[in-house]
């Protein structure tokens, strides 16, 4: 049995890693920070709400469905909005406004769906928690073991896909230099579509697990968005696996650090839960504009120089 504070910290870190990996993926490919990543998380969470409240099943069974549905939602947005915009040579701010529009669209859509569900099935759709269907296994909550397993699986699969398969290498080439990659014959559109699908899908998974951490309302993901941004920036926006250490730092500072400060120093620190990660992010941006990924790259290039 580990300290529940550390357990929750790890749990939150893993949710953060999922969501910010999604954000980093679309940032790497289409170079736009998606202001709507939070709504993807909320959508995933509401798939879980539907499972638990309407179908009376454990939301964990719906992980694959949430993965697919939110993935398709995100993919649809790429195909219908981002792609035409890129074709017309839209600049980054226009793309950012497009994701901001998606946020407004998704927020309204989620609210409409939620109110429809609550009127049709007479269920409560806000402040829903999945904790009641959770149970203990080997002394750990099952959700904790599930997220641990899912994360490890995804990281291994993603790592092998990006480094060993042909598509993964094509994807990395497209990230490095899109026009050069298309000259070599890589289908850029397919790479971008996949990145957007996976971005939504990962957030969909994060959404289901979010319900085991905090109660869900229609703005749950939007409240979490600054944390996702902080993680992505800390990890160095150009590094997919940089989000892993960054997510751990953010998760531990959100839970372990704030609660320890509250317990040993003063209760005044307790509400800082959402603020400390943002302060860390601001410091990182000012001191190391390339984030943790940038630091590791700096070390690597310096080592490289010394060898030669």
């Amino acid at each position: 049995m580990i300290d529940p504070l550390i357990q929750t910290s790890i749990y939150v870190s893993l949710i953060t890693i999922f969501a910010s990996m999604g954000l980093t993926l679309t940032y790497l490919t289409t170079k736009v920070p998606n202001f709507s990543q939070g709504s993807f998380l909320t959508l995933g969470a509401y798939v879980g709400v539907y499972a638990q409240e309407v179908l009376d099943k454990s939301p964990l069974y719906f992980l694959p469905i949430s993965f697919l549905l939110v993935g398709l939602y995100s993919f649809g947005f790429y195909k219908l909005v981002i792609k035409p915009l890129l074709k017309r040579g839209a600049n980054i701010v226009l793309l950012m406004i497009a994701t901001l529009t998606l946020n407004i669209f998704s927020f309204s859509f989620i609210n409409i769906m939620a109110s429809y569900l609550s009127q049709k099935f007479k269920i409560s759709v806000t402040y829903v928690t999945f904790k009641k269907t959770d149970f203990l296994l080997l002394g750990f909550p099952f959700s904790f073991l599930a997220i641990l397993l899912t994360t490890i699986t995804f990281i291994v699969v993603l790592y092998f896909m990006l480094t060993k398969t042909k598509f993964g290498i094509a994807m990395r080439a497209a990230i490095e230099n899109a026009s050069l990659a298309s000259v070599v014959g890589i289908n850029i559109d397919r790479v971008y579509s996949f990145a957007w699908f996976l971005s939504g899908a990962l957030s969909g998974i994060a959404g289901i697990f979010y319900g085991y951490y905090q109660s869900i309302d229609t703005a749950a993901g939007d409240k979490f968005l600054p944390i996702i941004f902080a993680t992505t920036i800390l990890g160095g926006v150009n590094s997919l696996f940089g989000t892993i250490p960054a997510g751990l730092i953010i998760g531990f500072s959100m839970i372990w650090l704030t609660y320890s400060l509250a317990r040993y120093v003063s209760l005044i620190f307790l509400p800082l839960q959402f603020i400390i990660p943002l302060i860390i992010m601001s410091i990182v941006l000012i001191v190391f504009p390339n984030g943790l990924g940038g630091i590791s790259q700096l070390i690597r290039t310096n080592l490289f120089k010394k060898q030669w």
Binding site: P33, P226, I233, V237, L278, I279, S282, I286, P289
Partner: peptide, 17 residues
Amino acid sequence: RLKEDYLGMTLLAFAEI
């Protein structure tokens, strides 16, 4: 100091604070 994308995320975070 920052470019459009970083700036967007940072100012958004400032407002959240």
